[in-house]
């Protein structure tokens, strides 16, 4: 149990998500063929049940929290100060760029950059060890996956590894 406000929030968000699924995602995202034999066989049958169940659970979460049932143990929500928010934002940036760079640079070089960037974001203590790992690990993984397991690890156009 988190604080009452957050619990109500979770319930409401869940319920709204359920409504979005029921009234937007299912009608627009699922193609129903015209020759469906019976309702239970329709492609929308099961997702619709899930959507309804999600709505009911979300609503009851919100109602329970609103009336304050079951508030036995309150666990605290982790605090987010400015610095940690910045770090998280930077990390998400690293992940996004990592993904984007895999195709043009190749997985190995992109991994090295991502590794080093994370070391920088977290202000890691062991800089040298960290950098050595950042260079060695992707190379080792490439050697294993490509040469031992025969997986075509994507290579960029710039520098190709043997």
């Amino acid at each position: 149990m988190l604080s009452r406000r957050i619990e109500i929030g979770i319930g409401v968000v869940t319920a709204v998500l359920a409504l979005l699924i029921l009234f937007v995602a299912i009608p627009f995202g699922i193609v129903t063929p015209k020759n469906v034999r019976s309702l239970v066989l329709s492609p929308t049958f099961w997702p619709t049940i899930l959507g309804i169940a999600l709505f009911l659970i979300g609503a009851s979460l919100a109602v329970r929290a609103y009336f304050g049932f079951g508030r036995a143990a309150v666990k605290e929500f982790p605090s987010f100060d400015r610095a940690s928010l910045l770090r998280l934002a930077a990390f998400i940036g690293v992940i996004v760029f990592y993904y984007i760079l895999i195709a043009p640079l190749g997985m190995v070089w992109a991994s090295m950059l991502a590794f080093a960037a994370i070391l920088y974001v977290t202000r890691a203590g062991e800089r040298l060890t960290g950098l050595i790992c950042a260079i060695a690990l992707p190379l080792l993984l490439y050697a294993f996956f490509f040469h031992v397991a025969g997986v075509p690890i994507p290579q960029g156009e710039l520098v190709r590894l043997p």
Binding site: I135, L139, V159, R160, L161, P162
Partner: peptide, 13 residues
């Protein structure tokens, strides 16, 4: 190691 890698990469290109 890096130098030899670079050489190998050159050979490949």
């Amino acid at each position: 190691f890096i130098i030899s890698l670079g050489a190998a990469a050159l050979a490949a290109s």
